[in-house]
C-alpha cells in the first residue's frame, strides 16, 4: 500500500520541510557539534577522549532507541539485544575474517537488522506494557544465548582480544584515531535516523504514536510501519554495537542485558523522547554519572542513578530537550524534531 499524501496523513506536528536557508541554519548546531567532537582528541587527554568515544557509542544506541520510543511510541526494554548482536557480529568478524573498515560496521548493521526482524515480527503486534514485557523477554533470551553459546560468543568471559579496526591495512593504533572512527560511525548512524524521522515515513510513525486508530482509518497498516521502524532501529543499534566492539575490544553478555537496555531508556527520557538529539545528551549524562561520578561514591553509584531517575520524572517531564522547546510560543508539539 502507498500512503496518499503526507499532508493529510501526518499529525499537525509534521510540517512541511523548511526552505533551504532555514534548513542550513538548523543544521548549523549539528555541524558545529561534529566539528567540536572531531577536534576533541587534539586537546583532550587520552582518558577524556576514551570517555567521549564511549559516550558517542551509547548516544547512538540511545538515539536508535528513540526512534522506537519517542517517534513510533514503542517503549522497548530489550533494545540492548540488537546492540549486543551487532557487537558480537562485528567482534567475531574482526577476529576471524578482517578488521578492515567498514566490514565490521556493515556486519553490525546487517546482523542487528536481521535480529530485529526475526523478533520484531511478533513483538510489534503487542502494545503498551505487554510490549515492554515481550521485549524484556526477548532481551533476556538473547542474553542467555550469548552466555551459553561458548564456541561463538566466548560465553560469560565474552569475546575478547578483538583487534583494532584498520584502515588501508593500518590499525587505528591510538585513542584519537579510534575516536575519529567511532565519531564517523556515530554520525553516519545518526544521519540515517534523522533522515528516517524527517521523511514522510517518519511522519506516519508519529501519526501511529499519537493516534493509531486514526492512522488505521486513514488506510495505513501500522503493523508494517512499526516493523520497519523496529528493524531500522535494530540495525542502527547494531552499528552502535560494532563501534562498541572496536572501542572496548571486548563484548560480553552484560552488554546486551537488562541494565544496558534500562540505561539506554533512561538516556532517552533524560534527554527528551522524540527529538533524537536529546537522547544523545541524555547518554552523555548517563555515561558520565556511571563512569566518572559513580566510582567516586564509594561504590554507591546506583544510588545516584536512582535519584537521577526520580528527579528526571518529576522535574523534566519532557527531558532536557523539553526545557528548551517549551520556551517558544506555539511549540506544543515538543516532541517534534527540528528538521
Amino acid at each position: 500500500m502507498t500512503p496518499r499524501t503526507t499532508a493529510d496523513a501526518a499529525p499537525p506536528s509534521a510540517t512541511a520541510a523548511p526552505e533551504p536557508p532555514r534548513r542550513l541554519l538548523r543544521a548549523a548546531p549539528m555541524a558545529a557539534t561534529v566539528v567540536l567532537l572531531a577536534a576533541a582528541p587534539l586537546f583532550l587527554a587520552p582518558y577524556a577522549t576514551t570517555t567521549l568515544s564511549r559516550i558517542l557509542v551509547f548516544a547512538l544506541l540511545a538515539a536508535s532507541l528513540d526512534l522506537l520510543v519517542g517517534i513510533t511510541g514503542l517503549p522497548s526494554l530489550g533494545h540492548a539485544a540488537y546492540f549486543g548482536v551487532g557487537a558480537y557480529a562485528a567482534g567475531w568478524i574482526t577476529i576471524h575474517l578482517t578488521p578492515a573498515v567498514p566490514v565490521p560496521l556493515l556486519a553490525g548493521a546487517a546482523f542487528g537488522g536481521v535480529a530485529a526482524a526475526a523478533t520484531g515480527w511478533f513483538a510489534v503486534r503487542s502494545a503498551g506494557v505487554f510490549f515492554l514485557m515481550l521485549t524484556l523477554a526477548i532481551g533476556e533470551i538473547v542474553r542467555q544465548v550469548a552466555q551459553s553459546w561458548d564456541s561463538v560468543t566466548g560465553g560469560s568471559n565474552g569475546l575478547y582480544g578483538i583487534d583494532l579496526p584498520s584502515v588501508a591495512g593500518a590499525p587505528l593504533g591510538n585513542v584519537g584515531l579510534l575516536h575519529w572512527y567511532v565519531l564517523a560511525g556515530a554520525v553516519l548512524g545518526y544521519a540515517v535516523l534523522r533522515a528516517v524521522a524527517a521523511s514522510p515515513f517518519g511522519a506516519v510513525l508519529r501519526g501511529i504514536r499519537d493516534n493509531e486508530p486514526r492512522m488505521r482509518a486513514l488506510g495505513y497498516r501500522p503493523y508494517g510501519y512499526k516493523l520497519a521502524a523496529f528493524v531500522i532501529a535494530g540495525s542502527v543499534a547494531g552499528v552502535a554495537g560494532a563501534l562498541l566492539a572496536a572501542q572496548q575490544r571486548l563484548v560480553t553478555p552484560s552488554d546486551l542485558g537488562f541494565t544496558t537496555a534500562a540505561l539506554a531508556l533512561l538516556a532517552v527520557v533524560i534527554g527528551g523522547a522524540g527529538t533524537l538529539w536529546g537522547p544523545c545528551l541524555g547518554a552523555a549524562v548517563v555515561v558520565l554519572v556511571r563512569d566518572a561520578l559513580g566510582p567516586t561514591l564509594d561504590g554507591h553509584g546506583p544510588l545516584l542513578l536512582g535519584v537521577v531517575f526520580i528527579a528526571v520524572v518529576y522535574l523534566l517531564p519532557r527531558g532536557a530537550a523539553g526545557v528548551r522547546l517549551r520556551r517558544g510560543p506555539g511549540r506544543e508539539q515538543s516532541e517534534q524534531e527540528p528538521t
Binding site: V69, P75, G128, V129, L132, A262, L265, L266, V269, H300, P302, L303, L305, G306, V307, V308, F309, I310, V312, V313, Y314, P317
Partner: peptide, 28 residues
C-alpha cells in the same frame, strides 16, 4: 499520583528509581 496521566514508561522509570535507591540503601 502526579503521574496519573503520564505514560507507563514514566511510572516505570520513577518506580525503577525508587527500587535502585531502596536496594542501595539496604546494601549500605
Amino acid at each position: 499520583e502526579p503521574l496519573a496521566h503520564r505514560s507507563h514508561l514514566d511510572q516505570a522509570l520513577l518506580t525503577l528509581g525508587v527500587a535502585l535507591v531502596v536496594a542501595e540503601l539496604l546494601s549500605i
